[in-house]
């Protein structure tokens, strides 16, 4: 599995590249009536207004700083109300990809919390990387709130 690496707060995260539509720079955002604090704003992604969730704020940490390495990860999400939408996830240090082998996916000696939005993996040269589960990070209620 190819994973995109990025940072939220102090933790290193990985996201399965097959979940990603595109990675965009941290563009200038439009600030309308934000449905929640963790929505950084929205931008026109290929002509479609697309909300941006600041993963720093969503996970209760500080907002992502406007650095060149801070980027918008565009992912496709669906809820019963909004069957096919693209939303942007703002994360820090989006500069690397890594290939995670099936063996690495299954050698975690820590207790796996089936409900947690992240699973810790140990990758050579990277230390601990949290594998992000989008469906648990962004449940339907959150999607409906952001897209509504």
């Amino acid at each position: 599995m190819l994973a995109l690496l990025f940072t939220i707060g102090t933790e290193r995260f990985g996201l399965d590249a097959s979940e990603i539509v595109e990675v965009a720079p941290y563009v200038e955002l439009l600030h309308g009536s934000q449905p929640h604090d963790f929505v950084a704003g929205e931008f026109s992604y290929r002509g479609t207004p697309t909300p941006i969730i600041d993963l720093g704020l969503l996970t209760g940490q500080s907002a992502c700083p406007p650095l060149l390495s801070t980027r918008i990860i565009l992912v496709r999400r669906a809820s019963p109300k909004y069957p096919d939408r693209i939303i942007g996830l703002l994360a820090e240090k989006v500069t690397e990809t890594v290939t995670i082998t099936p063996a690495q996916l299954h050698t975690t000696d820590q207790q796996i919390d089936e409900a947690a939005f992240k699973t810790p993996l140990t990758l050579d040269g990277y230390g601990t990387v949290q594998l992000l589960h989008l469906d648990r990070l962004l449940p339907t209620v959150v999607l409906d709130l952001v897209l509504g």
Binding site: P25, V27, F43, G47, L67, L68, S69, K93
Partner: peptide, 25 residues
């Protein structure tokens, strides 16, 4: 090389990219 990306993105840069991302790919 990655440290080069730890710079503040200028408003001009972010505005230009907003225009590029708004156009069809």
């Amino acid at each position: 090389g990655r440290h080069q990306l730890e710079q503040t993105a200028s408003d001009e840069y972010r505005r230009q990219w907003a225009e590029i991302m708004a156009r069809p790919k």
